[in-house]
């Protein structure tokens, strides 16, 4: 069954793959796994931590909706798990697992699901770097927290 939700800890991928492997008997021929990580360096600056803020229950509802909506021809199952909270470089942030009849469908569907997860659900990132804190509004678009916090403006 397709599933999408926000999680706190890590996912046991072996368990998920094992579970989806059972669909081989129904014609499943490929599983693609995507894992997103916290990067340790952005714009040449060291990243100390990334805080993920979500808006529950709506973030999980939207991830679930993406998983269900992308279950079209040739796709056997989709799992989306997005972590929230404070994560350090090297920690996993996002898991997407797609089981499909063949590799082409599995890769294409995983890519499409990833793009939707990146752009649609209410998930917000605050990047703590050696040169300050930044809100991340998109690929490459950042706003320094020195500009958003009121006490900074009074200085």
């Amino acid at each position: 069954m397709p599933e999408g939700r926000v999680i706190e800890g890590e996912v046991d991928l072996n368990r998920v793959v094992e579970e989806l492997s059972g669909k081989a008997g129904e014609g499943m021929g490929a599983i693609v796994v995507f894992i997103g990580f916290v990067k340790g360096s952005v714009d040449g600056k060291r990243v100390e931590r990334l805080d993920y803020e979500v808006y529950e229950p709506y973030t999980s509802q939207h991830l679930q909706r993406i998983a269900e909506e992308e279950m079209d021809e040739g796709v056997m199952d989709i799992r989306i798990y997005h972590r929230h909270g404070n994560l350090r470089p090297g920690e996993k942030t996002l898991y997407i697992v797609v089981a499909a009849r063949g590799r082409r469908i599995a890769f294409e569907k995983a890519r499409r699901v990833l793009e939707r997860v990146k752009h649609e659900p209410p998930i917000f990132k605050l990047e703590h770097r050696e040169d300050g804190d930044y809100w991340v509004f998109g690929d490459g678009m950042r706003l320094s927290r020195e500009e958003t916090l009121p006490e900074k403006r009074l200085e």
Binding site: Y58, H119, I123, F137, M141
Partner: peptide, 23 residues
Amino acid sequence: VALLPPVSGGSRFKPPAEYSYGC
């Protein structure tokens, strides 16, 4: 009611009028 900034990956995302975050 919630007031939200653009989502983290959303710099290129233009939500349609009927777009909704949740269900």
